[in-house]
């Protein structure tokens, strides 16, 4: 069972992000593995423990953007590749999906490609299904439970969390799976894992290394702006008893005409 996990490096979710000169800026906030991707890494490691094989990390990013990769290696992944190329500076999701599809092919003999739900910076949530479509693999998105994974038959059975509840789906492998946060709690890296990750050799692949036709980007984002500042008048409701406070609050809320 060979599993690839595609991860992205993003600013920490606690970062104060502001627009400066039309660009996003997060000051000196740390760069980390996209939190959603940690669940994909954990899922991969659990399946590897059950079925053997390798867990390979692929990340696309700037040269030296290896913090996220090191976290994944410290959790116990076997190996990692960083795809980095100046040509990808203006990449859109479809370009990234073509790059990931090509990298997955280059890794070779992959049964399962795992992704987080979306990246917390761009909030697109389209890269995994796009990668699946390019590979011609089925996509099983927002998986909360892997019920069965059968490497011999080349099948997987999962529960997907959708708006109406859980959909139970069986699919042939290879497949692309995106995981929901409730699939498993990500493990903490071990001390040995952290030491190993710090010394790990992380090969960098350029677009030329991928030997694939990567299309030109079509989506442009000329400007990132701060959301309009909202003037909120704070009003603390007080009273002599909870009943009085509740009555006043109910009247005030109804007065806002949002009900």
């Amino acid at each position: 069972m060979n599993i690839v996990v595609c991860i992205k490096q993003v600013p920490d979710s606690a970062a104060t992000v502001v627009a400066e000169g039309g660009q996003a800026s997060w000051g000196d906030a740390p760069l980390v593995m996209n939190p959603w991707d940690e669940y994909a890494v954990e899922t991969a490691l659990l399946q590897q423990e059950a079925h053997g094989g390798d867990v390979t990390i692929i990340s696309v990013g700037a040269e030296g953007a290896t913090e996220a990769i090191k976290s994944a290696l410290a959790m116990g992944c076997s190996q990692a590749y960083l795809v980095s190329d100046p040509e990808l500076a203006a990449a859109d999701s479809r370009v990234i999906a073509h790059v990931l599809a090509a990298a997955i092919k280059k890794v070779g003999d992959v049964d399962l490609a795992l992704f987080g739900k979306q990246a917390i910076d761009s909030d697109m949530g389209v890269t995994a299904p796009q990668t699946a479509r390019i590979l011609g693999w089925p996509v099983l998105s927002l998986v909360s439970v892997v019920q069965e994974l059968n490497p011999e038959d080349g099948t997987i059975k999962v529960e997907r969390s959708i708006e109406e509840g859980r959909q139970v789906v069986e699919s042939q492998l290879p497949a692309v799976v995106t995981v929901s946060k409730d699939i498993a709690d990500p493990r903490y890296p071990s001390f040995m894992g952290i030491r190993k990750a710090a010394r790990a050799d992380i090969p960098v692949w350029t677009l030329a290394d991928l030997e694939a036709d990567i299309p030109a980007p079509l989506v442009r984002w000329p400007e990132v702006v701060n959301p309009p500042v909202r003037e909120i008048t704070n009003e603390i409701i007080s009273g002599d008893s909870p009943d009085e406070i509740a009555e006043t609050l109910a009247d005030k809320i109804i007065g806002e005409k949002v009900l």
């Binding site: 600013p11 104060t16 992000v17 996003a24 761009s122 909030d123 989506v219 000329p222 702006v225 959301p227």
Partner: peptide, 14 residues
Amino acid sequence: PVYAGKLLAKTYCE
């Protein structure tokens, strides 16, 4: 909205 709505991105398709 990007960064969970901390910022807004203006975007278009070429």
